[in-house]
Design a protein around this nucleic acid. Sequence first.
DNA 1: CTGGGGAGGGGGCCC
DNA 2: TGGGCCCCCTCCCCA
Length: 459
Amino acid sequence: MEMVCESGTCRPYRSAGDAGHLPVHKWTSADMSAIHQSCLLKQLDQQRQQELFCDCNVLVEGQIFRAHRNVLYGSSGYFRMLLSQGSKDTLESVSASFDVFSPDIFAIILDFIYSGQLELNSSNVIEVMSAASYLQMNDVISYCKAFIKSFLEISAKEDDENRYLCLSDSSPLQDRRENVIEQSNMCDVSMSPQTRLWDQQEDEQPQEEFSGTSPQPSGLQLNSPPESSLEEEQYGSGLPERRRRGSRKRTATSRLVTEDTSLIDLQGVVSHCTQKADELYANLPSIVGVVGVFNKDSTPSMRYKCPFCTHTVKRKADLKRHLRCHTGERPYPCQACSKRFTRLEHLRSHFETIHQARKLVCRKCKRHVTEVNGRVVSEGTRKYRLCDVCIQESGYSELITDGTDENEEKEGLLLGVEENMSDNRQITWVMDDDDLAEDSGADLIIQEVEDSDEEASGK
DNA sequence: CTGGGGAGGGGGCCC
DNA sequence: TGGGCCCCCTCCCCA
């Protein structure tokens, strides 16, 4: 007996009792359920395209989309709220209008609602996620995030940080980097409402059951995100942003200093991450703002919403700065200790505190000192001040630095290199020779290096 | 175990 | 728009 979907769009399959020549497969109720859902969705999509039984008009920047209110209700928290607050009369047509995303983006969302196929690529993922956030479609948000994460490979930073930075000889680092490039080249994602069901089936049943002519529902072609990342990415997870940072990053930093072999490869990954972040910045949609805040004079205040979290900022530049905490981008490395920072001011503060001993405070007795009675003590790349009394008491005299160690005498202490991907130049921060002398007045000098050839030698 | 200080990270906002 | 400053928060270390 051959069973054929009535819509004619599904692949034929055979029942368990069919004694035909094709391999016999056992069909479970879950299989049937998935097939039925798939067929039903296709039917609804056909009805939408033929504008049959459409009872909802969605106006997006002047363009009208016809849809079924029950489908929208079941797919979007926004429509759920809208339709439940609206008329209970099922005969009355319902309209909704949007100006916060483009018709193209809503078409992608609507196609997903009716087909389970999400047409994501690197240039639309931010806008799709922003729209999905507006429409409260958490599944779409999650998979957009998964797409972005695979694009940036920031999961490597968050999930595998410890293992990753502790790599010694037989590390899978190379594999990891290849995986980063492979995943970031992936541009199209399809996902299905049955994805979770399918995953569950795979867990519960042997793979052989779905081989051969099995009518597999269109599953997720992108690797499903790690459970931990999905868990972490849930909106309103209750875990504060600051809480989620913290010890792991700090630990990674300390290891960064000690694991030189890992450091080189890490820089490659970070460089790749920076490049991908730049691509995302370049593709930031023109409309990412939400009007939800009002000034004192009751005029609406436009703010930019982060597509990764609920944070909003007034300026696009602030959003770009904020996005670094999601992308893991750290474009400001300290060449003295290889620690990387998200902002130049943090790098400067770190350098002055750790490597220059700019603070006029005795580290031991905490008393304020002057340039005269406070001497700079050097321990490795770290410098701090001690008063004359503490120096005599502690016997630190052999550690006192005259501010002219080897690195500084040569060609200035290189503070960091940032690759400028847009114009293929490097921006290099160097410390002048005199800069390490206390309060010389000179500060960070910014040099622009034309070619990236310097980079290899620098690293 | 607890409190204080150092260091780092992020937001708001001014220039 | 970027740089920079100020402020606050969190984490870690140490006494």
